[in-house]
Write a protein that binds this DNA or RNA. Sequence first.
DNA 1: CGGTTTTGACCCGCGC
DNA 2: GCGCGGGTCAAAACCG
Length: 186
Amino acid sequence: MEGQEAPPPPPPQFPSQNPPYLFTPSLLLSSSLHPSIIEPQSLPDIDWVGLLSGQSGLGENRPFMDSASMVAENGAEEEKDKKKGGRMKKTTRPRFAFQTRSADDVLDDGYRWRKYGQKAVKNSKYPRSYYRCTHHTCNVKKQVQRLSKDTSIVVTTYEGIHNHPCEKMMETLTPLLKQMQFLARF
DNA sequence: CGGTTTTGACCCGCGC
DNA sequence: GCGCGGGTCAAAACCG
């Protein structure tokens, strides 16, 4: 509906200055992650190589970790669709896709997701699932799809940037930070 | 009892 | 204009 408009600038309430919270804290520290990230290969209908190298047809894509350009895109992102029905339109927001070899479709990347749809895709006997970040001010989306070619491989596509910290990351990092502070006194 | 999943309907862009 | 493929909505079911 039209009731949920993302309010302006999210107040920085985090150490460091209003960073773009890219997905995946705990994803990158793969200690808590069983599946291993493998090399993206050519896939039908999607230019995976372009996505990962930051020069696909969407033009504005960047590989992850490029926080500077992410900030810029995040600022320009709020200027967008006001379709009559209030539906989301094709806003050029950063996308990022990768494959994992995993038994379960959803991997714990530290954020909370609410599933809002599932569709069967052509050329694949497995459905694609659509998730959205449950944080109110955050409209990051991701979709998960298992390859019909190789059942053990799951493709996850992230769209957008989190504008809030990851709870799981804090929960993981807090003890560490405390210990560092303690040790820093000597 | 509140949040999440399920699932069919709906919507929209695109190619013919 | 129409059909298809893909993305989203929303109500009901489900679950802790």
